[in-house]
Design a protein around this nucleic acid. Structure first.
Lengths: 139, 139
DNA sequence: AAAATTGCTATCGTTTTAGTAGTAATAATT
DNA sequence: AATTATTACTACTAAAACGATAGCAATTTT
């Protein structure tokens, strides 16, 4: 899994990894909607093509943002879970949500998302705790 | 300036605008490095092609994230400045910096950036205040 | 045993990106 | 005043990425 980086800037380096139209949406599906399988993510509103989803999951896995495993009771489904590193993207996802909620309404219909008036750090903690609780139920 | 949106999700909508490898870097150059002209942004470490920079600046302007103007004393240079909407991307830029600083060092050389241990909201305020002060000196 | 589901890969036309060259207008230099 | 340099682009083409669809193997369900 090769990748080259444009510069030594932390922002540019992160963009070299996740700077496309799909990667953060996959992370969103996992963090917020607790999606865990190829099928669940495929079924999102935005309609990602399987070839793209496949490539992105591989990339995210190669950078240890997600892990891929099978559960003993199902040999068909792969379960994708966020690592701590991946779950640490929550703050970015929250900031995207807040900015999009505030400024994109003039250009597009935007869903109302409850709880956006909560303190940011509490939002981030809540999301991360919910995710970890979900992981505990399946492993 | 046409653009279509994939869904009514605020995150997806923001990604439809800024979800590429360059837009946020341009915003970073403006917010952090106080770059204001086509030339200054062109000269960044990452080496953006002029055709791409031109297209992105037009897009950012069309969504009122930046403005374009000339100063009376120079009829050649265009001055690009962030609007309040654009400056509100500071929190996202800060979160990118923090995540990149924390997790990208194992994959790439990452510059040390002073002040990353400061409280997030103070970082954001400081950056925004510095930017506004800079704008005041030239307008 | 047959049908459906899941998790992909393959293919291919279209779109986007990247790199380079070139140009017009202004500004600086000689 | 004439030449040179700078700025802000646009134009062009090659390369890469994307997007939609089809297809397939391994399971699971019926």
């Amino acid at each position: 899994m090769k990748k080259s980086f444009r510069s030594s800037c932390p922002i540019a380096s992160l963009l070299d990894l996740l700077g496309d139209k799909w990667s953060l949406l996959i992370v969103r599906d996992m963090i917020i909607k607790h999606k865990k399988t190829f099928k669940e993510i495929s079924d999102s509103d935005e309609g990602i093509a399987p070839s793209i989803l496949s490539a992105r999951l591989k990339l995210l896995e190669s950078y240890a943002i997600i892990t891929k495993r099978k559960l003993p009771e199902n040999k068909k489904e792969n379960i994708y879970l966020l690592t701590d590193k991946g779950l640490d993207l929550t703050a970015i996802v929250v900031e995207y949500t807040l900015w999009g909620d505030k400024y994109m309404r003039e250009h597009n219909t935007i869903d109302d998302i409850p709880g956006l008036d909560t303190d940011k750090s509490i939002m981030v903690d809540t999301i991360q705790n919910n995710y970890r609780a979900m992981v505990r139920t399946i492993c």
